[in-house]
Design a protein around this nucleic acid. Structure first.
Lengths: 253, 253
DNA sequence: CGTTACTGCGTAGACGATACGCAGAACTAG
DNA sequence: CTAGTTCTGCGTATCGTCTACGCAGTAACG
């Protein structure tokens, strides 16, 4: 029988249902030798140590002392594994939204916590996109973010937009950091040396007449040394939250 | 002889030097049958039509009627090709920064233009990160963005941060759009049906007691139908630019 | 006309995802 | 206790990918 529209619409990949605790052990058959959580942990371990590119089904299986194909009893495809790896790497969100707390402090803490998670597991940013969040931790993070905005008078739609805006900012900022670290690794240099190299490269490539604004930046010494990433992050976050604050004011007044 | 520090620091992949016009035709030897630009165009064509996953060296070569290995005379590795594909897909930036124009209009136009490019070539967002921008169009976009901020009184470092902030917002917003479209494609449904499906899924997965803020969003009907993506984009952009405006005010006053 | 530098590209190796199906284990019904 | 059922681990095999290597042919130069 064909699955109904409703079934396909709310159908989840096997391993993700397991992550939500929607599947128990099978009544019959041999005891499973592995667990979804164990597989995901092993995969995260590999990604942390050797990068996302090293995460192949075979490599993860070897990590567990299992055969490659054994994993496919637990995970329908590699995509599922990646989705669950991201969920595991985020972990449970911090409790930042105290009832009665100032929304801005809560949201800033939430953003910083996400940033910390991305710095712990930079490969998260390389996982290809698959769809809207459906894993337990991902939704828990969303919940925490929304709670920060409880007392603001924003509409629910606006709250969601703000959450998306902030998380987008954090991800993008972290992405830039990873790009620089990646470039440093590829060139075999210390992270602190990358910006001067980049400045030299830009100076060689770009003509001051055709790139005046860029050369003004270079001349001002902006690329002479790496900025403190924390300062850079806080600067942008303040801009974003200022923008949100402007909206909150219109709703409060 | 070992390359000096300076050489490695400013060394560029072969094909990217070609893109900057830093390499002429070789004096001797047979006439090249292909060009870097032609290869990149073919790859972009494949990505547009069949997605980034379809872009393999072999597939691109077939598109050109050449052999797989022929491409490696022009690009050192697949990464280089991807970088150049992104550059080609962005194309030349629009001229949004009129001298004497209001910075906010210019920056909004710049953001919208980038968004349009990402919508034309959604696979850009799936290209793995490699490093800071070094291709001609990428730097031209940066130049245009910086020019918008000419009259604002911001420091050069602040201008750069603002540009990064805005481009980050645009990329993130486009990413969300692509995720939704991707989910729609994977589920074989019309784009307009995705949000109701998602709402059903969340309702099934999350307990209202443990996810009260999320359920408030659901109850408010936020996920009942797809928002107009343009409205959603403009909302977030206004927030970001409001934040920038607050900074500009402190520098002007 | 040799020399030389460069071209196209065939061959081949290493690796990755994953469909398929078998052998055997664990549980249940009788 | 036994037979049947259902699930597990995983070997085998297919197909696709990137790319190192090196040969043979070609165009320009001296």
């Amino acid at each position: 029988m064909e699955p109904t529209d409703d079934d396909t619409a709310t159908a989840l990949p096997l391993a993700i249902e397991v992550a939500w605790g929607l599947r128990g052990r099978a009544a019959k058959g041999p005891r499973p030798g592995l667990t979804v959580a164990g597989i995901v942990d092993a995969a995260v371990r590999v990604a942390d140590a050797e990068g996302l590119a090293a995460v192949s089904m075979g490599r993860v299986a070897r990590e567990l002392g299992a055969a490659t194909m054994a994993l496919y009893r637990y995970v329908g495809a590699k995509d599922e594994l990646l989705t669950l790896m991201v969920d595991a790497a985020y972990g449970a969100p911090p409790r930042v939204a105290e009832p009665g707390g100032y929304w801005r402090d809560g949201l800033a803490g939430w953003a910083r916590a996400e940033r910390a998670a991305l710095h712990r597991h930079p490969w998260i940013l390389q996982v290809p996109i698959s769809g809207p969040p459906v894993t337990p931790h991902a939704l828990a993070w969303m919940e925490q973010g929304l709670r920060c905005l409880a007392g603001t008078g924003l509409t629910e739609a606006e709250k969601m937009s703000v959450i998306l805006l902030v998380t987008g900012y954090v991800r993008n900022e972290a992405l830039l950091g990873v790009q620089i670290a990646e470039a440093a690794r590829a060139a075999g240099r210390e992270p602190g040396q990358i910006m001067p190299d980049y400045r030299r490269l830009l100076t060689r490539l770009t003509d001051p007449d055709r790139f005046p604004a860029l050369h003004a930046v270079i001349a001002a010494g902006v690329l002479d040394r790496d900025d403190d990433p924390d300062d850079e992050f806080d600067f942008g976050l303040d801009r974003v939250l200022d923008g949100v604050a402007a909206l909150v004011r219109t709703r409060t007044a």
